[in-house]
Amino acid sequence: MLQPIIEIDGVSKSFGALEVLKDLSFNVAPGEKLALIGPSGSGKTTILRILMTLETINGGTIKVDGEQLWHREHEGGLIPADERHLHKMRAKIGMVFQLFNLFPHKTVLENVTLAPILTKGAGREDAKRSAMTLLEMVGMAEKADAKPAQLSGGQKQRVAIARALALQPKIMLFDEVTSALDPELVEEVLNVMRRLAEETDMTMLLVTHEMSFAHDFADRVLFFDGGRIVEEGPPDDIFTQPKEERTQAFLKKIIAAGQRI
């Protein structure tokens, strides 16, 4: 197997007395499309947030692209990473949020060009050209001059995807990106993600409640419960013949709620 692009090793995380991740370990291969599923509060979103450095970890180590994420090697040991190291590591990772988090005071185009101009020293014209290509890809080029407030949820999320792609990350994190959308807008966002998966070899981690999408999209599915991985495997195995009782119970509930898997 190739050198994993993400190596999570014995990671734990607590919020106060609440332990959300318990001694968690798993690897992600380069280019892999990984779906993280499980009940709310199972810790799956926390993993994405830790990878984006939005949350710290309490124990364990994470390597991204061969380098420690939260630590720095120092005289043979590991010491906590400083802001400079985190800044370098963040360049490898992009994230799309449940609530879009577009910059409301900037136009669609500026949302996409801001980070490349500021963090990569891209020229304004170059940044614009690349941004338009990305907006084209997500079908939002026509709205380049609109403000986020003028867009539907699905459109906002497509812009958010273009914004995250603009920094050319090796890893993309999608955190329940369709959960806040009206049902009729979900498909347009999922289509963009399907295209992305087909046309790029980016590594993608996806936290989702859209089981049928996870089924089609992912190479591998991790089922989380209580801060641990309960079961993992190819989507066909997890969705059609789950071994663990908790996985079966979870999927049963999902089906009862009317979702196709």
Partner: peptide, 15 residues
């Protein structure tokens, strides 16, 4: 979420 988006966009604190 704006702080988080800025971090995800890898902006520095002053930026």
């Amino acid at each position: 979420g704006q702080w988080e988006a800025a971090k995800a966009a890898n902006l520095t604190m002053p930026q």
